[in-house]
Write a protein that binds this DNA or RNA. Structure first.
Lengths: 251, 251
DNA sequence: TTGTTTTTGAATAAAATTGATTGATTATGA
DNA sequence: TCATAATCAATCAATTTTATTCAAAAACAA
């Protein structure tokens, strides 16, 4: 076995077990104890794992899902401001849909103690909502790796059983011709459905624009109010305002 | 057991009990008194816990940051062994239901790369499943504070749209007359429904017994195989075996 | 092929962890 | 208050784990 292969194997083992003893690793790789030790030293100096007396565990860095943590650090201040503005639009007793995604995640602290009912398709949202004592419903569906969003036909069907006073959607971009865009077609369908089911719809648009799949074209923009920040490019804001209400939050 | 694992275990125990005596910790970790004391000293100097005469409690800092995903619990070692045995009962390509709860949570590391489809009502389960690339469906429903389980009429309805090759249920106790018990009536209904929908049913029973709500009475015990450890009291095991298959895992 | 470098496995001494013991300290109840 | 029991910290020997060294094996290049 190539030493690269063996080190991959060690990482894989740790991924499933979190920690493993030297003996387990010797057993599972077939290499000698000395070799495993050398591998662990190497992997540790690469910050891939953390050695502990008698074995090894995944390094903190590898352990944390980088995707959601990383994403939420991007434009975080901007997202917070947008989220706060969005949350202020709710009245007591209302039922709202919180789309999966890091921007809507930031709304949660502003939803506590306000007698709201929250429906969401974002798995990471749920513990944060529950821990604040917010009445929370999850729509169900297929879990999507990376974002932890619930999508697919089952999600759509479950979603259709609700109706909302307000829905809050995160997006990746606002295309001047195509409308709101998001990189994942599955998530796009969920967003589109929620848009249909809500009395009022708000689109939380942080200024980064990387999406490509359209979930609502420009003719339907008027259905939702866009909440964005002054970091969205001027020309885009101007363009948007032709079609719909735009609320600009200063960062 | 690696000393890191043991310290993790101590933290987990304190998270659920808030305080624990030295003797309890010795009992639950299997280490000697001296070792537990040393661990407590180390953990205290790391400001992870606070030592008190005769035992330890969580430090204020630890107590205020409750990470639901981490919220495993007492008898962690026991649960791991039971979980491993349970996971070994699955064949490639099968579709299974994973009940919410900390015991089934421990099964997840053993489910990776086995071509399984997992359906769950446990929110904390989802990120762990997804991060291992396991195809995951969430049933939907009302989120329950504390356990992060999805319950209620919507959960039941969503659940009924699936059928399973196997379902794995966590329980809090096995009552000699009433059957399986769990402290929450809402969760009991979900468990009962999953039991109906699965070809094979397994009940993961760690030995602690605090539940009171019945979700399956003794006459229906035969529907499921109980997987427990040698820490379940002898008389209880003997009694159980009158009604159903029992698999005993040695800790 | 030959010579060089890298990797591996075994041996061994150093270091860390553990469990038991001891005596000191602290809590508990009369 | 005192006596008793429980808990604690310190020490030591036994065990386990680790780092180091060295020779053999493998990979590599000329």
């Amino acid at each position: 076995m190539l030493h690269t292969e063996r080190r991959e194997t060690i990482i894989e083992i740790l991924k499933t077990k979190d920690t493993a003893s030297i003996h387990e690793l010797v057993e599972l790789t077939g290499a000698s104890e000395a070799t495993v030790r050398r591998d662990l030293s190497k992997l540790e100096s690469d910050e891939q794992i953390k050695r502990i007396h008698g074995g090894a565990s995944l390094s903190r860095r590898r352990r944390n899902e980088p995707t959601i943590a990383e994403k939420s650090s991007v434009n975080q201040w901007e997202k917070k401001k947008i989220a706060e503005a969005a949350a202020s639009l709710l009245e007591p007793g209302e039922c709202l849909f919180l789309d999966a995604g890091t921007t809507t995640l930031e709304m949660i602290p502003y939803l506590a103690d306000r007698d709201l009912v929250v429906v969401t398709n974002g798995i990471p949202h749920v513990p944060l909502l529950l821990e604040r004592g917010i009445e929370t419903y999850v729509i169900g569906g297929k879990g999507k790796q990376g974002t932890g969003a619930l999508v697919g036909i089952k999600a759509i069907e479950a979603l259709r059983e609700f109706c909302f006073d307000a829905c809050f959607l995160g997006i990746n971009g606002v295309h001047p011709v195509h409308g709101y865009t998001t990189p994942d077609p599955d998530e796009a369908v969920v967003k589109r459905t929620a848009l249909d089911l809500a009395e009022r719809s708000y689109v939380l648009a942080d200024h980064s624009k990387i999406g490509s799949i359209t979930f609502a074209n420009i003719g339907e923009l008027a259905l939702a109010e866009v909440i964005t920040s002054d970091r969205l490019r001027d020309d885009e804001r101007t363009n948007l305002k032709k079609y719909t209400d735009v609320k600009v939050v200063s960062t």
